[in-house]
Amino acid sequence: MLAFILRRLLQSALVLLSVALIAFAMFRFVGDPVNQLVSLDTPADQVRQIRQSLGLDDPVLVQFGRYVMNALRFDFGISYQFRQPVTALLAERAPATLELALVSALFSLVVGIPMGVYTALRRDGVLARLFQAVSLVGVSLPTFLIGILLIYLFAVQLGWLPSFGRGETVKLAGGWTTGLLTVSGLKALILPAVTLGLFQMTLIMRLVRAEMLEVLRTDYIRFARARGLTTRAVHFGHALKNTLVPVITIAGLQLGSIIAFAIITETVFQWPGMGVLFLKAVQNVDIPIMAAYLVMISGLFVIINLAVDLLYAAVDPRLRVTLKGA
């Protein structure tokens, strides 16, 4: 097991190194960064001086090495537009995005799994068919449209929930700001979380349904019924546990995409998270932020994948053997 984790960590390091290379390459291919810093009438001397002080006339490999070493210390340079350290900018906004992502992931699992189980068990029921039909809408409607529709209904027409922002936040130790502890923060979270999680929820529901139907046809379920186990034990013990094995993978990968693609939802709801920061960075060609965002998201994916692999082994004993042998 330990060997497996170590090997996966090594692989993860390689993945991150290649991502860092791509991020680093952005600095060079999106034009000369010095031009972003100086104006047209800056003397050539001063330009050379800036270039030198930023280390931009060193060999590419040395620059890349320096970039990686700095990244390891969470130093991604200074933002062009804000003139502040990128790490501080991201850290300031990360809580908003992470809270939004986790709540919507939780929403999609807590609602999606029971709906999937229900539609599988009552395949021909009216409610199950309704869920199926609605889930098609959830899968096919684009996120921004869902967001706008929800705002129109719940913020504009009914006036129950705020249409933008994060509400009141509370500062916790370590600089983490949370909106989960105030009423207005919670209210502000509902619409964006539902918008962001709706697609994942319908995806998980359809996945659970398909897997569950598959599992219910297997011999061990027939045998469990032949042994006279209660329907409850058969469905929620034997069948559901087997259903969750593939669901874990998808849910894990989806958590990564939720964080990465929160950008759209954040824009629609003016959510003060990393997504909005990233979009501004794109508009202003703020390479350090884009590069740092890229590295951070891929780091998240790598960590989630590792966690998923370990969870897999916790659920399925057959994999533990494979892992031990690895």
């Binding site: 297997t218 019924r225 042994r227 546990k241 399925d316 004993p317």
Partner: peptide, 23 residues
């Protein structure tokens, strides 16, 4: 359901798939 397993037992063809792999 109470009769199954208690009064009538059943053995299926394929022992490789008759047992739940996760239990």
């Amino acid at each position: 359901r109470r009769i199954r397993g208690k009064r009538i037992g059943m053995v299926f063809q394929d022992p490789l798939t008759s047992l739940n792999p996760l239990y």
